[in-house]
Amino acid sequence: MHERNETPLERADRNFGELLQELRVTQTGVQFLFAFLLTLAFTPRFPSLDTTQRATYVTTLLLTVIAAALFTAPAAVHRMLFQLGAKRQIVRVSSRLAACGMGALVLALSGSVLLVVDVTVGRAGGIAAGAGTFCVCAGLWGVMPWLMRRELLRRDD
């Protein structure tokens, strides 16, 4: 690993700043998704959704709420532990919260695509589009970084 000339506290401060930048990007997407989902229930076509579509809608809405809660939790953790010398713990916990938020978000995005394509094209198309969305997000957010990390660690050894 390539070390920087910084103290552990400076590293924690930098890591927290980088994490907050990442959370700003993801939180905006979650807010748009949540707003979209909230408005769906008040559209004229919503009452015509079948039981599966309604279950997909409610599940996706709740996953979006969970993602939003996980992505905003680091701010609450930081606020509650502010000036207690816990920055390294804040960074560690916040990073885990963000990772869990990404997991909830991939499911929420997949469910949203499943619902919209199901309503517009049909169930089989919805399932295929939702599964495709899941695979793309899981690949870009999970598999690709894992492969990059593995390669970097192997190169540093």
Rank of each mutant, 00 (worst) to 15 (best):
G29F: 05
L97G: 08
M102L: 15
V121R: 12
C137R: 04
F32W: 09
F71C: 01
L109E: 04
H2G: 07
L153G: 02
E6K: 12
S48E: 13
A131T: 12
R11F: 01
A67G: 03
L152K: 14
A68G: 12
T52V: 08
S110I: 00
R154Q: 12
E151A: 15
T133A: 02
G139H: 04
L20H: 11
D157F: 08
L70V: 03
L107E: 02
P44K: 04
A138D: 02
C137L: 15
V93T: 14
A129W: 03
L115H: 04
G142S: 11
Y57N: 04
R123Y: 13
E10A: 12
T28V: 14
V65E: 08
A55I: 12
V143T: 09
T120Q: 14
Q89G: 14
G101V: 01
R4H: 15
C135V: 15
R96S: 14
V117Y: 06
G111N: 04
T56P: 00
L40H: 05
C137A: 15
V91R: 01
D156S: 15
M148L: 14
D157V: 10
E6G: 01
G101H: 06
M80L: 13
L114W: 13
L38R: 06
L152W: 10
T60H: 02
L63Q: 03
T52L: 13
T51C: 00
T52R: 09
T72P: 01
A108Y: 03
F16Q: 07
L147C: 09
D118V: 09
A75H: 12
V91M: 05
R150W: 11
A128Q: 04
G130L: 01
G17K: 07
